[in-house]
Amino acid sequence: MAPAQLEQRRSHNLLLISKLLNQRDASSPFTLVIDSLEQSAKPFVKEYVRRAKLSKTKVLFVSYETLKAPEGVDIFIQATRKPFPTLQKEIATAASEGKNLLVFDTLNWIAGDSSLNLSSFLSSLISPNTPLLAVYHQDIPLSRPLESSHSPHPLTLLKYLSTAIFSTHSLHHVLAQKSARGRSLAEPVFGLAEEVEGIVQGMGSNDPRGVVLEMEYRRKSGRGVHEWYFLPSLVHSNATSQVSKGKEIAILLDDHPLYRQSPANEGWNGIDEVGMDSTFNLGLTEKQRRDREGVVLPYFDAQKGEGGEGGRILYDMGEEDDFDEEEDEI
């Protein structure tokens, strides 16, 4: 990845996630969070609620599976077994005139209900000052009645409706998969996907260090922006100082020290280089790399004009090059 491109992504996409997390300018009326047993969306939702509190937004939390109101939630609505019109009314009365944030702890259990028109129900809840943040657990299979087998799967529908989709991944798993990719091995799978009898959650699931987020954001034009982020957990990182300064704590996954493409991380976390017992330094300095990239390959030269000057190697001597009369004679 060219540095300039990364720089651009850094500035644009970090601004974007900051805008999304802080719910500025009605950036995303319907944010869908797709989580799994391997990485729960809870820390991510918590961060959302925390920032909503900072901007004095009223947080309405509709619970289907949460027992106690999470920290920072203003109005906690138990929705289990509630008829949808009642729920709708309750949310409408709870919503204030000012800014609100409506959170659904899971959509799974209402997505399976064939008596409900999911899209109209959700869009009736969303208003310009009430964006919706909803979680969908992707590993809960849905048994669908026969008559709805021709309509799209609720998750497909939700993905279509939403303006931003976040998929959560465990940092531990992302690093393990990257390391396997780097060595051209099959990427490991975790948890239920391991298909080992009796395993429900994989090793390293719900990494305490933070959450890896895969974002897909739809602009008004319809163009999608795709990016991977890392959201550090406040307990386990020193991000607290940044929070107090009001800085963005989310970073690009490519900027994560353990994920970054750097000599230290290439291969087997740098073990290859160290373990290679050689007196030569096989690495390149930044200048050497740039010089090497600057070399015009002989056949590019040959393609110029009338065959150029043949397969000559054109190289401008640097001052550190040692000119040898016999060898370097052209």
Partner: peptide, 11 residues
């Protein structure tokens, strides 16, 4: 479950 506590995520 996810990082509520300090050691919440340790498997």
């Amino acid at each position: 479950a996810a990082g509520e506590g300090e050691e919440g995520g340790a498997v």
